[in-house]
Design a protein around this nucleic acid. Structure first.
Lengths: 206, 206
DNA sequence: TGTACATCAGTGAACGCGCGTTCACTGATGTAC
DNA sequence: TGTACATCAGTGAACGCGCGTTCACTGATGTAC
């Protein structure tokens, strides 16, 4: 699309942001760099975003959606006829390991999701139905499911999401930009992740 | 010390780095900014450090030492005549909660410790005896202690440090630069931390 | 004790860079009549 | 169906900034004799 009017510059910039974060890291996102990638003048971006920060937050939101989808995809592999208690645990495992393997395979996108606690100021209205639930919502649902299945005592449920998120996010950080980074091959790291998640679940269960 | 020869510019730059990280965040450390704070020309720093990176890594190392001391201080509050099993658990708790409260009270220093997996290329020789053990070493010792006290099964010991570090580091990240940041008062956050650490220990114990 | 001189630890000015953002503008689009 | 015109979505050039780093230098220090 090399016309004077680009067509959908907004989407193209977000797309370029994802591509750039994937290959050069989340810190590489800049106004000039992104518009250059799209083949457009720097200020053209200001038609669609208030400033760089807003653009980056929008890209971060897209990264977060992909994280949610990765978790949902992993959840979908659980056999439907699984015993309810086992299934509830498997869903929490899917959240944690989905989160971690996403971080391992797309560290740049994962770094972006860490900045997306704040919604961009000039978000464009999207059909809410198309958007996946946030990772946080998936986690809450998984924990509620464990209580409902009788795998977790109700009095342990309160605020348990922060415990789970800490373990999951912490492992992702160590493997992605911490001492575990580059030091071991992927299979080893996944094995360590499974061990961490197993300990977490053992601590939550009755 | 306003002489032409500064006296100990190297130490002064590291000190200024700590001060600056404390008040303006770890990202604020720059050559010009740091030398300005000390009252010296930018290039004077190149007498003592190869480049900015090396200076920052040195400051990061100092931050890591303070983290270790914070953990050791907390460990020291455990009564000496405590029952060995209980004491072993208390030491692991001291590691985790010491780590987290350090991050809460000095987020800038904590952010620096995350960059210090790499030693600065031009480290100056220090009497090794003066340096505290690294946080990682403290964690290993705490876990070994739990096995020795019979609180943790030996077959769970292998690689358990990554599980502990994930939970601890993850909570610190969430509270420091994640969704828990600023949203709740400190007491609440500490309570959540205690809950997370309790779940971790429950998962590790027999 | 005094002096020559090498070494050390700073100065001052400049380099080149890429950044985010703003200004005034112009080519393309689409709508009203 | 044709045309005037408002609006939209880009262009091109420039602003000012602070950065890390290098160059040639000079004032202070301390050591050998």
């Amino acid at each position: 699309v090399d016309r004077y009017h680009h067509g959908d510059l907004r989407a193209a910039l977000v797309e370029a942001g994802m591509e750039m974060a994937r290959h050069k890291g989340a810190a590489a996102l800049g106004m000039r760099e992104l518009t250059r990638a799209v083949g457009v003048t720097p200020n053209a971006a200001y038609r669609h975003f208030a400033n760089l920060r807003s653009l980056v937050l929008t890209v971060a939101q897209e990264a977060q959606h992909r994280l949610s989808r990765a978790i949902l995809d992993r959840s979908a592999t659980i056999a439907i006829d699984t015993d309810p208690a086992e299934r509830a645990v498997a869903l929490l495992r899917a959240f944690a390991l989905g989160y971690i393997t996403f971080a391992l395979s797309q560290p740049g996108w994962f770094a972006l999701t860490c900045e997306s606690h704040e919604a961009p100021p000039d978000a464009v209205a999207t059909a809410a139905a198309e958007l996946p639930p946030s990772p946080h919502q998936l986690l809450l649902a998984a924990l509620d499911g464990m209580v409902a299945a009788g795998v977790m005592a109700p009095e342990r449920r309160l605020d348990a999401e922060w415990t789970c998120w800490s373990m999951t996010h912490g492992f992702a950080m160590l493997a992605t930009s911490g001492p575990l980074q580059g030091g071991a091959d992927r299979d080893t790291v996944v094995r360590l992740a499974e061990q961490a998640v197993a300990t977490l679940i053992r601590g939550l269960r009755d």
